[in-house]
Amino acid sequence: MGMDIKTPAKAGTMESNDIYVIVQPNDEGGIIIELESIVMKQFGKKIKEVILETLEALNIKNIHLSAKDRGALDYTIKARVETAVKRGM
């Protein structure tokens, strides 16, 4: 049984090397990720993978997540997703 987001929550900033993450409940079920990134072309796919991995590790099955990336490294992406999810639970 997965955990769900109960209330909208956000984490991170729009500063360089950070990522701003907003999470919301997804009543339709499943995982929806919307990503904007300054390095979309080079790393968009990789960033989505990192977000998915983090959600999986947190056992989140239903979520609507939108992220604005400002060139965050993996450790920051993981941290901001985890923070937003925990704030929304």
């Binding site: 984490a11 941290a79 985890e82 925990k86």
Partner: peptide, 11 residues
């Protein structure tokens, strides 16, 4: 405080 704790741990 929560965000910094998680970020520093990951760093």
């Amino acid at each position: 405080k929560d965000a910094a704790r998680i970020l520093v741990r990951n760093a």
